[in-house]
Every structure is written in structure tokens, then in C-alpha cells.
Simulated scan of single mutants.
Amino acid sequence: MVWKALWLAELERAMINRLLQSQVWHKMVGRVYQRVQYHRHGVPMEESRTTLSDGQFNRFLKYFKEELQDQAKGKPPNKL
């Protein structure tokens, strides 16, 4: 009877070790954690930020440069 309990305990340890080494397990736990944090605190800062693609960023830099030049020359801002 004691041997059976030891065998089951060893099998349980081996299964837990294999589970903890699995990438799928860690992804699943991470998703559950994100959902819990979302329900507790709302939208996280990472999701609320917007990013610019390379084309958008280049257009922004061009527009920003033009605005600085216009302000240096004393032209009124009339771009939309």
C-alpha cells in the first residue's frame, strides 16, 4: 500500500514538472492573468497607446518640420 502511494506521488511530481516546462501552459496562464488584470483595472496602458507605422511617422515628421518653419517665419497656422 505504501509503495502505491509513493508511486502515485512520483507520477504526480513528474506530471507537474512536465506541465511547468510546457510553453502552452505558460501562455494559457499569461492569458488568464491578463484577463483578470483587465477586469480589475480596466484597459492597460499598453493597449490604449497608438503607434505610428513608418509611413505615418515620416508624414508626421514632415508636417512637424513644416510647422516649425512656419512658426519661425511668423506665418499663421492654417493647415488642417
Rank of each mutant, 00 (worst) to 15 (best):
R18N: 11
R31E: 15
Q56G: 08
G30D: 14
H39Y: 11
R59N: 13
N58D: 05
V2G: 09
W3M: 04
V32H: 14
W7S: 04
Q71Y: 04
L61S: 02
W7P: 00
Y38N: 04
L52F: 14
V43L: 04
Q21M: 00
G55M: 06
D70R: 10
V29K: 15
Q71E: 04
Y63P: 00
K73M: 03
K79C: 01
Q37C: 09
Q23L: 03
L68M: 06
L6F: 10
S22L: 01
K62Q: 09
K27F: 12
A5G: 04
A5L: 02
G42L: 01
T50Q: 11
K79A: 05
M15H: 13
W7I: 02
Y33H: 15
W25H: 14
I16D: 03
R18D: 11
W25M: 07
M15L: 13
Y33E: 09
P77V: 01
H41L: 01
L11H: 15
Q34A: 10
N17A: 14
R35V: 05
A5H: 13
W25V: 09
Q23T: 11
Y33R: 13
K75T: 01
V36T: 10
M15N: 07
G30S: 15
P76Y: 03
V43M: 05
G55F: 12
N58S: 07
S22C: 07
R49S: 05
N58R: 14
E67Y: 14
M1C: 04
V43D: 04
H26F: 14
F57N: 02
K79R: 15
L8T: 08
G74T: 01
V43W: 05
N78F: 05
S53P: 06
V36R: 14
L20V: 04
W7A: 04
F57W: 06
R13S: 07
K75E: 02
G30C: 10
V36C: 09
E47D: 02
F57Y: 11
R13G: 02
H39E: 12
P77G: 01
L52K: 10
M15S: 07
A72T: 02
E12I: 11
Q21Y: 00
H41Y: 15
K27I: 08
W25Q: 08
Q71T: 00
L80C: 04
V36M: 06
E10R: 13
K73P: 00
K62G: 03
L6N: 06
T51G: 03
